[in-house]
């Protein structure tokens, strides 16, 4: 039987949890890939702010080129650190640019068995909204199985917020249908 193809979505701040979950839950001989997306919206936003200045002052500085260089270096180092933590230094590394959520969905469109994703919303308790915008999009749209992990300690069951209007009344012990 062919090895399972597992893609681990590596995101700053939560990647360790995904790598650990993949190691614990899948056979060591699985086909692991590590995926990182540099969000073009960030570099473009900084670039747009500079365009708004009419490119004035500081000739010879091209902000966007500096951002992309820094972002590429950081992505390469992050994926290397993730591969090391995974214990598979030769794991496939996918470094993509663009709209994060769309690039992730596109990357797992074919031949992927499981995508490992971390929650990144409110993680102080169980319940909404434990998914950020991009993560929610990926969970909604990924055309493969998705493994959703708590990147650090999982909150206890008692952390689920109480209903707004107090707890619902307990159901009666048994019902009689002979009232009518």
């Amino acid at each position: 039987m062919a090895a399972m193809r597992i893609v681990i979505w590596v995101v700053e701040g939560t990647w360790q949890g995904c790598v650990d979950a993949a190691m614990q839950n899948f056979p060591a001989d699985s086909d692991f890939s590590l995926l990182h997306v540099t969000d073009s919206e960030v570099t473009e936003a900084a670039d747009a702010a500079a365009i708004g200045l009419f490119g004035r002052g500081f000739p010879g500085r091209k902000p966007n080129r500096r951002y992309e260089g820094v972002a590429d270096d950081e992505a390469a180092q992050l994926l290397a650190a993730a591969a090391e933590r995974l214990g598979h230094p030769d794991a496939t590394q996918l470094r993509l640019h663009g709209r994060t959520e769309r690039e992730v969905v596109r990357a797992v469109a074919e031949g992927v068995d499981v995508l490992v994703v971390a929650r990144d919303g409110d993680r102080s308790r169980l319940g909404p909204r434990s998914l950020g915008h991009a993560t929610r999009f990926v969970v909604d749209h990924a055309p493969c199985a998705v493994m959703l992990v708590w990147p650090d300690e999982t909150p206890g069951i008692e952390s689920i917020p109480a209903p707004k209007h107090g707890p619902p009344p307990p159901p009666p012990p048994h019902r009689h249908h002979d009232e009518a």
């Binding site: 701040g13 820094v70 950081e74």
Partner: peptide, 17 residues
């Protein structure tokens, strides 16, 4: 825009945030 933003970008990248 031109001088501080690149430094902030590099700082965040170094911290891996």
């Amino acid at each position: 825009v031109v001088l501080l933003t690149p430094v902030v970008f590099a700082t965040v990248a170094r911290l891996r945030l």
